[in-house]
Simulated scan of single mutants.
Amino acid sequence: MDKIESNFELLGATAIEDKLQEGVPETIHDLTRAGIKVWMLTGDKEETAVNIGVACNLLEHSTKMRRISINSEKCQNEHHVQYLLKYELQKFKDDFEKHQDNCKPRALVIDGPTLMLASKEGVRRRLLKLTRICKSVVACRVSPDQKRSIVHLVKNNEPACRALSIGDGANDVPMIQEAHVGVGIAGMEGMQAVNASDYAISQFRFLRSLLLAHGRWNYRRMAFIVAYIFYKNIIQSISQFFFAFWCLPCALLSIE
């Protein structure tokens, strides 16, 4: 870019208004109250990603939340990343021992180049350990393939979790396909995310109803039908078993 895009004269510029949809902060607040950890994966720079995180209630002010920033300016190699992760884990341990009731929640802000260093074998376990204690994670300057890698990393190392990816553009397709459940938003970015998803919605705020209402009802229905089939098979088998005791004397009398 430095060689090709030089000595140009700017004739004009155009832009597309990019703002949060209605109900996004309230939806994220309800999801976090329900115990769901929300990660934001974006290709924007760190400053823009942090502003978006604050606007949608994913990040709180510094007085209420400790914001852990790990970027390429602080870390040149994986040893620097490992040192910062070790320091933050020890810092959380010390704060928790001193202030168990008033320990500040954590939020991790990490960029794409640092994420590549942290995904290596020696650093990966500490990164996952730090994300477990963080209330939210913001990954900025990440490519579509890195979004998929993050979802894959969580899926393989957290057996108890179920990953849901939601996006509205073609750059979100890899992570939507990688997650257990993929949700696409039909909007101005096209229909690529919708075509690759399991569920399609028109606005982000409908995710609250999809998860907390319809998802909960579906879970209860599935739990009921599993228990029903289990006990139905038991009753059918036990009835045949006890009926055999009644049939055996009758069979012996008929033989005599």
Rank of each mutant, 00 (worst) to 15 (best):
I176N: 00
Q82A: 12
K45N: 11
C247R: 10
V54H: 12
Q76C: 08
F241G: 15
I166T: 00
E78G: 01
N218I: 05
V151R: 01
N171E: 03
P113Y: 03
Q21L: 06
C250H: 14
Q21W: 10
V24H: 00
L31H: 05
Q203I: 01
L89M: 09
T114P: 05
K129S: 13
R126V: 11
M1E: 04
P174T: 08
R67T: 08
L59S: 02
E5Q: 08
F204V: 06
E73I: 01
Y87K: 15
T48N: 05
V81Q: 06
R33V: 11
D172W: 00
K74E: 14
F92K: 14
L207P: 04
T114H: 05
N57A: 08
V226S: 15
E47R: 10
D111M: 00
L31F: 00
K74D: 09
A179R: 08
L31R: 02
A213I: 15
P25V: 04
N102P: 04
Q177C: 03
K45P: 05
V183I: 09
D145W: 14
I28H: 07
L130H: 04
I150L: 14
K45S: 03
M175E: 07
M188C: 11
R126W: 02
N171D: 05
Q177M: 10
Q90R: 09
K45C: 00
E121Q: 05
G182H: 05
C56D: 00
K232S: 13
V183C: 07
